[in-house]
Design a protein around this nucleic acid. Structure first.
Lengths: 115, 115
DNA sequence: CTAGGACTTGAACTAATGGTGAAGTCAATG
DNA sequence: CATTGACTTCACCATTAGTTCAAGTCCTAG
């Protein structure tokens, strides 16, 4: 049973209302509906959005974040959040390795562009 | 005096002909023109494109790469390429630092989302 | 000199990304 | 019961990095 409106989730998560609706369309969060067709969210919605924002900083797209959050059961336990944390950490470290590889290629740039 | 055609630069740099024209429009490379209005490139054009591709892997946009390459004089010397290399390295390291900062925020995620 | 592959332009198109805005509807308060 | 703020949908926007197309022109090998 969701109790939070779009505006409440927006305030709690620090994104705009249109972003909250966008994230629901994209499947990052789930809403139930009132008789008047308004969205109502569970309390973990804001948390999911906060995780999503961090994931965006790591470089994940909204689509990838949807897949990431899909692994999260309804009413997630500590271990579930921990698993997410681990996956995000792995992603960030992967991207760091990619950047280091690019650095190596830059380092060998004299071979690419010797005069 | 440029001597390379679009197709030749494309082959040497490993991008498509339309991409070569795109990069010229964006100011990443410069072309002279034949009497018949065809582009002719200097030999460093392919090199600039290779640098641009690495810069894209680092996460720079084409616009940012244009600015980066704008610092390169015509007929660049080793020190000029070295300067580019240093700037690209700094950019990559900056992005790595951003990722580490994101990792730190993930690490404190229990505070963001505690149950 | 001529055939045909490589080249020219500009605009339209693609496809993903991450939303925003306008016009209209709902709901809770005074 | 009316107002006002929050909500609804769906179309649209802006950016990024090119690709594609048509109709025509150039250039080089034979």
């Amino acid at each position: 049973m969701g109790t939070l409106t779009v505006g409440e989730v927006a305030r709690e998560s620090g994104v705009s209302g249109s972003a909250v609706r966008f994230y629901e369309r994209q499947g990052l969060i789930v809403a139930s509906r009132t008789g008047g067709n308004q969205r109502r969210f569970d309390t973990d919605a804001a948390c999911r959005i906060r995780v999503a924002r961090v994931a965006q900083r790591v470089g994940l797209t909204v689509n990838e974040i949807r897949d990431l959050l899909a692994a999260l059961p309804p009413d997630p336990q500590l271990a579930d959040w921990q698993g997410l944390h681990d996956r995000l950490t792995a992603e960030a470290e992967l991207r760091i390795r990619d950047l280091h590889a690019a650095l190596d290629d830059i380092g060998s740039g004299r071979r690419l562009c010797d005069l």
